[in-house]
Design a protein around this nucleic acid. Structure first.
Ligand SMILES: [Mn+2]
Ligand SMILES: [Mn+2]
Ligand SMILES: [Mn+2]
Ligand SMILES: [Mn+2]
Lengths: 221, 221
DNA sequence: GAATAAAGTTAAGCTTGCTTAAATAAAAAA
DNA sequence: TTTTTTATTTAAGCAAGCTTAACTTTATTC
């Protein structure tokens, strides 16, 4: 049976495999979900009994195709809610994530499809993440890379930001560096790997920690 | 601490006291909440320890003022969600209740106030129930009475319907008998207490069970 | 005012999703 | 390869919110 907790596990396992490529480890999941590793082991057994993940002791977990399908359903709800709250109810970029984190578990298929239709079947959420479609496909993302890999002289577009930390997003909004901003990398310090970028004729210096949470694509020019 | 279960208990206790006047009995609550009476006794102790209800063994429960405040918060969320889902997302009269039943427990004060503003601070939900305001007051309801108390010759307006059973609401929508319909009671059978009403030049016969779920006010003419 | 029926409470136990502490396996270092 | 460190699992236990079954109180009927 599906529960809030299980839905969160599936979602986290999915996101983990997206950006690590390999199996989700207990330590990483425990950290992301703010529970003990013992809790992870516990849940691994349950999810694997339900055929949602494959699990071998000491070898981590991986979503099965049915587990992935379930994960995408939750992620779809999450991202559609985020966009809806921002576009329709004018909540800010930084507020929508926490609210969506709750609503995603209490939304019928019928309702989420209404929201999807209302928004005219959007492809991306307010942070630039692709919104899984009803049929399970995922909109193609541009050729993204973390800004931390940017080099002096590059012309880029800001296409995605990590939405887990609202303080960062608030800061970026405050200085006017928002999604789809075009900018140039004007400097990169070897000392601390911080970057200086130029947009709207402003210069902004961003620490390595920040540039790792911002994703960009190269603008061809 | 507030939990989904406690919120549902408080709401149910409140609604019970509204239409029974007296204390909420274990049997009634158990029935409304679909749990055993043992569960009610259990929760009675917890809620009374938290100061949300007064409880004396074998004497039922009653909301304290802080319990009532908490109940109104949930009811406010429920009814605002119902109206929002109907007006904005075009869900039907009969579908919104079940959806709101879930969303009401996962909506921040900030979000519900946004919804309230979006709807321009409405006074009534789609079923004619008053929406508690942010400050805790409740919109005045017209002088309502159950249609079952109607008599031949009365001219009435349909102002409220019990939203717990979606089949009834669907039926009423299908025959076009919707909120704010004006009608005349053209007959009342002593045999089964059923009523015949006339609206839009149609005659509709309603059983006693149905007329007890429909609330009206007398139209002065 | 007994006897009976109905309502409410207590006791014991279950499931979910956690925890901490101890044990064990795997990986890294020496 | 042996030792040490790190990661994972197991074991025991807790809180919430239920259940059923047995028991007690209150209400109703004669
Ligand atoms: Mn998010
Ligand atoms: Mn979540
Ligand atoms: Mn309702
Ligand atoms: Mn509810």
């Amino acid at each position: 049976m599906s529960t809030i907790s299980k839905e969160n596990y599936l979602k986290t396992i999915f996101n983990n495999s997206i950006d690590s490529g390999s199996n989700a480890t207990a330590t990483k999941l425990a950290n992301d979900l703010s529970v003990s590793t013992a809790a992870i082991t516990d849940m691994a057994k349950k999810l694997s009994e339900e055929g949602l993940v494959t699990y071998e002791k000491y070898r981590g977990m991986e979503l099965t195709s049915s587990g992935e399908k379930a994960a995408l359903k939750i992620i779809r709800r999450h991202r559609l809610w985020e966009l809806f709250l921002k576009e329709v109810l004018e909540m800010s970029w930084s507020e929508v994530h926490d609210e969506a984190e709750k609503l995603e578990h209490h939304t019928s298929e019928f309702l989420i499809d209404k929201i999807d239709m209302y928004l005219n079947y959007p492809d991306f959420d307010p942070h630039g993440h692709p919104i899984p479609r009803k049929n399970g496909t995922i909109p193609k993302t541009p050729n993204v890379m973390p800004l931390s890999q940017g080099e002096k002289g590059m012309f880029c577009e800001f296409v995605r930001v990590n939405d887990k930390d609202s303080e960062l997003i608030d800061y970026l909004a405050k200085v006017g560096f928002i999604l789809n901003s075009k900018f140039e990398v004007v400097d990169k310090l070897a000392f601390d790997k911080s970057l200086s970028i130029k947009f709207n004729n402003k210069i902004l210096s961003l620490s390595k920690k920040i540039t790792e949470s911002i994703f960009i694509r190269l603008v061809k020019n």
